[in-house]
């Protein structure tokens, strides 16, 4: 793993390659796949592209896209977090418990986010300072959170939530812009887009953001150039905790009930979004924009499969093929740009 990373890093350091791969990037490819899918399904059933369904496609995986922001950074720094699904469950329950126990609504929205950051700090500390591999830490944490959630809630659902609690059901007021009537946009979509763009800008232009790529690409070189690897990894996991916290609040405030079971396979969906979005598991490359597009694409496929009457029995097989397909396209593209950079 180390060797491959180092090798590909040599190529990446080439300025020309870098700019080329930016132009024909995974984000652009994903965008076209998404558009292609929408056009294809939309022609067979125009309701698929109707405004309402379009917003639902964006909204459906918005919380996953938010969690994928932090996950992208974690993976870019050459770590992984497989506890996100359980953490979303725990923080969502925390949020709901605060709300039904009479705490102010804003607290039930903010406290889980801070708690997420705290958990992130603990993971970061164990990974960066005590040098336990992140997959081990989060594998352990996964069972601790999953079991702990049941122990504390006793398996009961949270119902009877106060009326103002439902953050994810708030919509933007209808706006008329340049004579166009913009639709009411649910808040998760706003969170998804704003946070993704902020994170992308931060990663591209801030010192710390760039240092994440450096640590993931080549930790040794990063250290030599004066970057504190430990501090960066710590930061990455705290940010991941924050985004998971926000995702958890969006998840919990979407419906009138909060389940005390952790959604099965949620962590895989978040990781899938990040890697399909072009975040290399070997660290060092990828962006949050790609992860967001991938999350939307997965949601669009889910919806499309209902629309075009594919047997739901085959849904997961289609998802698997899709992941392979996007990764293959990405690899071929990278090889070509590498080849042309050499030539």
């Amino acid at each position: 793993m180390t060797a491959t990373a180092a090798r590909s890093h040599i190529h990446r350091d080439n300025l020309l390659t870098r700019s080329l791969s930016f132009l024909s990037s995974q984000e652009v490819i994903l965008f076209f796949v998404l558009v292609g899918l929408i056009v294809l399904v939309g022609t067979s059933n125009p309701r698929y592209v109707a405004e309402r369904n379009f917003i639902n496609i964006l909204n459906g995986n918005a919380y996953i896209a938010v969690a994928a922001i932090g996950m992208s950074m974690v993976i870019i720094s050459r770590n992984i977090d497989i506890s996100v699904g359980s953490l979303i469950g725990v923080l969502g329950t925390l949020s709901g418990s605060l709300a039904i126990n009479g705490y102010p609504i804003w607290m039930s929205w903010v406290v889980p986010v801070l708690a997420g950051a705290l958990v992130g700090a603990v993971i970061g500390f164990l990974v960066a300072y005590l040098r336990i591999p992140s997959i081990v830490v989060t594998l352990g944490l996964l069972s601790i959170l999953k079991g702990g959630l049941i122990t504390i809630t006793g398996g009961a659902w949270i119902t009877d939530l106060p009326k103002d609690y439902f953050l994810a059901q708030i919509k933007t007021p209808p706006v008329s812009l340049l004579g166009l009537n913009l639709p009411e946009i649910p808040s998760p979509i706003v969170f998804m887009i704003v946070l993704t763009i902020l994170a992308a800008l931060w990663m591209r232009y801030s010192m710390t953001g760039r240092a994440i790529y450096a640590v993931g690409g080549n930790a040794e070189a990063a250290r030599l150039s004066g970057i504190s690897e430990k501090r960066i990894i710590m930061t990455v996991f705290i940010i991941n905790g924050l985004t998971v916290g926000i995702a958890a609040v969006l998840w919990a405030t979407q419906l009138s009930i909060i389940q005390s079971t952790v959604p099965a396979g949620l962590e895989l969906q978040v990781i899938t979004s990040a890697v399909v979005g072009g975040v290399s598991i070997l660290g060092g490359i990828g962006t949050t924009v790609g992860a967001m597009l991938a999350a939307i694409l997965l949601s669009a496929i889910n919806s499309a499969l209902v629309f075009i009457d594919v047997s739901p029995y085959w849904f997961r097989a289609v998802v698997g093929v899709l992941i392979l397909f996007t990764v293959l396209v990405d690899l071929l593209r990278r090889q070509r740009s590498r080849a042309s950079a050499r030539g």
């Binding site: 085959w314 093929v321 992941i323 392979l324 990764v327």
Partner: peptide, 30 residues
């Protein structure tokens, strides 16, 4: 896929995790 195409093991098996389970569901028709 890992060796000849060069996709990292984690992504490859993440994809086939979905693919093989999907094939199982598809073949069995529940």
């Amino acid at each position: 896929i890992i060796v000849r195409i060069g996709v990292p093991p984690l992504i490859t098996t993440l994809a086939t995790l979905a693919l093989y389970r999907g094939l199982a569901e598809g073949i069995s028709q529940a």
